Amino acid sequence: MAVTITEVVLRDGLQDEPVVVAVADRVAIAEALVAAGLREIEAGSFVNPRRVPQMAGAEELFRQLPNPRTVRYSALALNARGVEHAVAAGVKQVNLVTSASQGHSRANAGRGVEEALRDLEPVVAAHPSVTFTAGISTAFVCPFDGEIAPEALLAVARRFAELGITRIGLADTLGTAEPEQVVRSLGVVRHELPDVDFSLHLHNAHGRALDTVDAAVELGVTRFDSAAGGYGGCPFAPGAHGNIATEELVAHLHARGVPTGVDEDALADAVTTVRVALARGRSL
């Protein structure tokens, strides 16, 4: 069974760094990731640049990304305005993100979960040519509300499924969820929504993210997000740690005989490209 990795360093990785990376350097990062064999890349987000200045220039970036016919590039959006901007920039796949918890939803999107979901419903119907996926932040633990009950996670996932979205990522935004909790919640949502392809977006606070990967692979999960260099975090989730590092995830899976299609040597070069880009970024 092969695993597909969605590389998120250009979005989640850069959004929590204290610098703004130039568009040209972000394009160079994309080129290095593609050279390493990554074929699914979340390249940016269409959010308020005053709140997340690191994502400014997303429109220009998407016009310059390499190999658009062979690489699936996606953009994150939190609301209808973000979706409209992404579509206007020519983005073909938009990842709609809301939270499983009220506290994080208000901090991240400026509204409660129900209001955030209602805002997204009409925009999905308005763009039938766009591929929509979904992501659920704080799917397991919230810095404001604590542990998330599987039933609360299921309620949000069900709303996305009702919109016709069949790929949903579950995010351990803080990186503190124990593997057993992730497995328990995965079991609930997969049982209730068998037609949905669930993936995991793991941060790594306690060094147990790879244990969670192993448990999820045993359950048949074949999609994971990660960030080259282990960069990332959420500016609106106090205590959030960096993403699981793509190079660690790939090496871990390869050691267990699980193919990813990613070349480890080329990936190491891509990590260097990210570090160089961050070193010359404009300080905020």
Rank of each mutant, 00 (worst) to 15 (best):
R167A: 11
P194F: 13
A270S: 11
A240T: 13
D195G: 10
A268D: 15
V182G: 06
H201E: 12
R190P: 08
G220H: 05
V276H: 13
V71T: 12
P49K: 08
G257N: 05
G187F: 04
V8D: 03
H191F: 05
V141P: 08
F62Y: 15
P18H: 05
E192T: 12
L61C: 08
D25I: 07
T260G: 03
T246S: 14
L120V: 04
A22H: 14
Y73L: 13
C234G: 07
L267M: 04
R223Q: 09
V27P: 05
F224K: 02
R158M: 01
T4C: 00
N204K: 06
R63Y: 02
L78Q: 01
Y73M: 11
A255S: 14
E59Q: 15
P259W: 02
V94E: 00
N243R: 10
F224I: 02
H85C: 00
A77Y: 00
V9C: 08
R167H: 14
T212L: 03
H104G: 07
A216R: 03
A251H: 09
D269P: 03
V9G: 05
S137V: 12
D225W: 02
F198C: 11
D25Y: 05
A32C: 08
A35W: 02
A77G: 00
A35F: 07
V87H: 05
E84Y: 02
